[in-house]
Design a protein around this nucleic acid. Structure first.
Lengths: 366, 366
DNA sequence: AACGGCTTCTGAACCGTTACGGTCTGCTGC
DNA sequence: GCAGCAGACCGTAACGGTTCAGAAGCCGTT
């Protein structure tokens, strides 16, 4: 099979038409609208195409003419490769891929290294629209996306008034989780959270930094905690919050260590993600702290590993989020006011939360 | 910020040039070759662009002219969404994404549902090349990819003489694992394998089906087992092989159940993937079989979960495979003979393999 | 005064296709 | 014998850029 006719320039629709003595339109129709020409001629066109090594209409030229690329762009906050290491991102991708598949659309992952702020990749992407997943408010790639005259859907963060959005009520969900911990009797707690800005700050978080966080999701979750604990009479200023730039088990463990070193008397560690919480569990184990007897640990997200571990956490429908983002994007019919979808969450009380020592419910043993 | 100038047609490079009274070349240069025009003019161009809502050169038109799409196409054997549920596929994707990122290339996932054999998605993808990951020899999407005059790299399967390839020596690796099991003393074994064709066959596999398998990887792994066991005097005809179309833990468990129901006296189950093996472990547990005392179970791949479980398996560098595929593709300089990279594997003897009862090495206990 | 060299900008060709609005041919029906 | 009408095919004009070989203007040299 000739992958390309040697010696000659590659065949085009025009050259094929010339060879056949028909118009370009006819060749085009042979591929795109079989009913517009006689079966015999169509066969002749297709046969000759094979002989000449013409691979069918060029996708890029077609895209230019039809103004359709047949693909959805996806912008992620992190290195592309990182996305494949984060359980949440993977599930989101799965949902989005589902939606794209149903619509026969490709999924174009845009390389957006946070290091070299190379926005060109966004400008160069031949796509019909963008899904933006969880990026900081001041991400230059996001700005580049919004500059392009294409439909866009933002998942999770940031929340922009003029752009379609899908997410959850982070504040309410976290508040509810906090109330659960409060009801168990905890007064002295610590918090582990994900990055609050594009700058690395692996350590304790000041109040101003909490408020000025560039990641609305983290900001809302912290605010949910704050509101719940303040309502319960706990001074939020006294609650230690440890931030981690990278999102991994190991970082969760290290952050928990940092917290426990400085504040050994905390009876509960609330984490803004399951991965951090699972890391905290590891660290607790290393320190001989029993969970939940000695220490309560909670997460957020409801990733598979967390559910298996029976972590107390908030489950959010990440796959649905991805699919909804895709459906929203693909159903965009020109202007219309921006839409916003808020998905439901569910508090999961697992086996990593209990009352602090001295607060157990009475036990009527033998 | 005007996302689009209302009322008027969207601005183009030409309309911008007309507005400014300069040539299109100059506007193009303002974006692509800043050194080709005076800073003042360039600023004027960019400012006017902002005012007119011109979002910069259209990526598709640029691609048409430059013959570069800035993206790598990826064809997977399965539903796109499925890829995000298979640990191996995810790690491959991660490696590939790494390579793409380094080169500033996008990663275009091609929707290729196995159901509707819609090859159009392949024809429509505006990409500079394709990576094909583990598809059957007779996949129509693969055929469509090969018809396009683009560089292509196949990872794992199939092996095509004229196309770049990256993979491992499945036969040798599996043979080595089999020898390990043979050395432990096992004579009566069973096998769990992944799908051997595009048709579903959840059950025992006939010899002809083994030979005619459309997935070269599975074929090679089975052949590796066969060769090792025949060399050890085991008649391969008597070794039960159970196939599963879907690749999941649950399917591994069901397959193991099927095997143990028919052949309760097997002392070892060799699986052609870790996921199947982990499922088999589950099933063994359900049946009260202790591993490895009552039953030896082995896997293949070396996914994280398997290493954590200390499964006896073969580790293959899946991330490297993805990265190598990307690098191979992106370094393709026109013809040259097809390249082939074979990556190393490593036998990992975990805690799920031991001698069958009666074959333990002598134990000098108290 | 002619010349060469530099910077800055331009004109026109070209990338490969599809949309749109025809024309042409031959057949039906009266 | 001719209007009317499908069906089959075609010509032209985009689609929105990039690129290359100059042209124009300016400056310093010989």
């Amino acid at each position: 099979m000739p992958r390309s006719t040697p010696g000659r320039r590659p065949a085009t629709l025009a050259s094929l038409a010339a060879e056949l003595g028909v118009s370009r339109t006819t060749v085009s129709n042979a591929y795109n609208r079989p009913d517009q020409l006689s079966p015999e001629l169509r066969k002749r066109v297709l046969d000759t195409a094979r002989v000449l090594g013409y691979p069918g209409p060029d996708p890029v030229a077609r895209s230019l003419r039809t103004r359709k690329a047949g693909a959805v762009g996806l912008l992620l906050t992190e290195n592309l490769s990182y996305a494949f290491r984060d359980p949440g991102a993977i599930e989101f991708l799965e949902g989005l891929a589902l939606a794209c598949e149903d619509a026969g659309q490709g999924l174009h992952l845009v390389p957006a290294s946070p290091e070299r702020e190379d926005v060109a990749s966004v400008h160069r992407a031949g796509v019909d629209g963008f899904v933006v997943y969880s990026v900081p408010e001041d991400d230059p790639h996001l700005a580049a996306v919004l500059e392009r005259p294409l439909p866009t859907v933002i998942a999770d963060q940031p929340r922009a008034a003029s752009v379609d959005h899908v997410g959850i009520d982070d504040h309410a969900a976290m508040q509810r989780l906090a109330r659960h911990v409060i009801e168990l009797g905890h007064k002295h707690v610590g918090v582990l959270c994900m990055r609050l800005g594009r700058d690395r700050n692996d350590g304790f978080v000041s109040l101003p930094r909490q408020h000025s966080a560039r990641y609305h999701v983290q900001r809302a979750r912290l605010a949910g905690l704050r509101d719940a604990f303040e309502a319960a009479g706990v001074d939020w200023n006294t609650v230690p919050v440890v931030e981690r730039f990278d999102h991994s088990l190991a970082d969760g463990a290290r952050a928990a260590g940092q917290l426990l070193d400085r504040d050994p008397q905390v009876t509960a560690i609330l984490c803004t993600s399951d991965l951090l919480a699972l890391g905290a569990l590891d660290e607790a184990g290393r320190r001989g702290l029993r969970v939940p007897q000695d220490l309560t640990v909670t997460g957020f997200d409801g990733i598979a590993e967390a559910l298996r571990t029976e972590l107390t956490t908030v489950r959010q429908p990440v796959l649905d989020k991805g699919r909804t983002a895709g459906e929203l994007l693909l159903s965009t019919k020109d202007p219309g006011r921006p839409r916003s979808v808020t998905l439901d969450t569910e508090l999961i009380t697992g086996k990593t939360s209990a009352g602090p020592r001295g607060y157990e419910e009475p036990w009527f043993g033998p």
